[in-house]
Design a protein around this nucleic acid. Structure first.
Lengths: 194, 194
DNA sequence: TCAAAAACTGACACATATGTATTTTTATTT
DNA sequence: AAATAAAAATACATATGTGTCAGTTTTTGA
């Protein structure tokens, strides 16, 4: 596969991402992607064989980029509590803006697709996030900024709350207030004064 | 519509429920329901015009039954903490058994279906549950069994955690231990000794 | 009991998506 | 510039689902 092909592959993935953001997963057909990319049916099949495959590759691209952002924010010299607060604020932003996210598509994918279960990108993301939060809390405890007697358990708890907020944002809808209250609970339970 | 029709309507809904439990929402077609019911295409269309409509009616039946169970458990004479613990244990059971639940179908429905958003059965269920938990906590606080300075906020928090667990159970999978830990956190934050 | 009404059936016409096979265009190499 | 290879487009065959309708069976009630 030549350089040109790699470029085009990437172009297709980036274009497809926009389609998935807009329509979720299920309603996206090969035809939709073909049209968004301004290429032909047969042409697309030269590169990918199904929407599932395309979606997985979109996710892979996505998670590579997210990892970069994460590690950046960690290396800044701020207190653990600061970083945690920053992280939660980021989550809040993400929760409240529904446009330009793959959230809905990801859930749809997991629900409808056997492949989704197998690959389990979500689980990897979840575990990775837990690990990062856990580390953060541990650091905070060591510095005396935070109080916590079960860092991993608390990290998981935070993630479950965030998952709950995320799915609720997608289904029943939530207000900024609701998110603030949850963030407040989390921070209070860690002994952060506000 | 005669008695016979009502019977048949109900028969279709009950049969369709099984289909939704088994296949979720998206993969269910009118044909599937027709076959499960052993009736003809045209016959089904005499009663319902889409899988969405059928699903909504299945949900309505379901929630009527759930309401009954709820109000029963409340009227028993136990302490508020006892009932709360019972409730959480019920939730745990529901979380861990994935068969015979409409959970997956409900999520799928909400993600894929404009109708789902509009009707917002989920939101009604969520709010109803919050109200019940809130009442329970208030009672507990009044009796001195529980400690809580924001009953409604805490009730919402509990629901968000449960939502997070529910969606995680469906997507990444969770262990009984993980649920236990969350239940422990909730009860501890309310001052329940264990 | 028999005619009208109601319930039901199965085939049909339509729509949409998939994956492939053939043809056409574009790029590369000698 | 001609021959060859690679990429892309178009048309086709297949599959699956939807909604309807003409015709049939069953039920009802006078």
């Amino acid at each position: 596969m030549g350089e040109k092909s790699i470029q085009k592959r990437r172009y297709i993935l980036e274009t497809a991402r926009r389609v998935f953001v807009e329509k979720g997963f299920k309603r996206v057909t090969m035809k939709d992607i073909v049209e968004a990319c301004n290429i032909s049916r047969g042409g697309l099949y030269l590169y990918f064989e199904s929407t599932s495959q395309i979606f997985l590759e979109v996710l892979k691209l996505e998670s590579e980029e997210t990892d970069d952002v994460f590690s950046h924010s960690i290396t800044e010299d701020a207190t653990a509590a600061d970083i945690l607060i920053l992280f939660l604020q980021e989550q809040k932003k993400e929760l409240l803006r529904r446009e330009d996210t793959l959230t809905q598509a990801i859930y749809e994918f997991y629900f409808e697709n056997q492949l989704g279960r197998k690959e389990n990108v979500l689980r990897k993301q979840f575990d990775a996030a837990v690990k990062i939060i856990e580390k953060l809390i541990e650091t905070g405890v060591d510095n005396g900024e935070l109080y916590c007697d079960d860092c991993q358990g608390t990290a998981r708890n935070i993630m479950f709350v965030l998952e709950g907020l995320k799915i609720s944002a997608q289904t029943i809808g939530i207000t900024a207030d609701a998110v603030d209250r949850e963030v407040f609970y989390i921070l209070r339970s860690l002994g952060v004064e506000m």
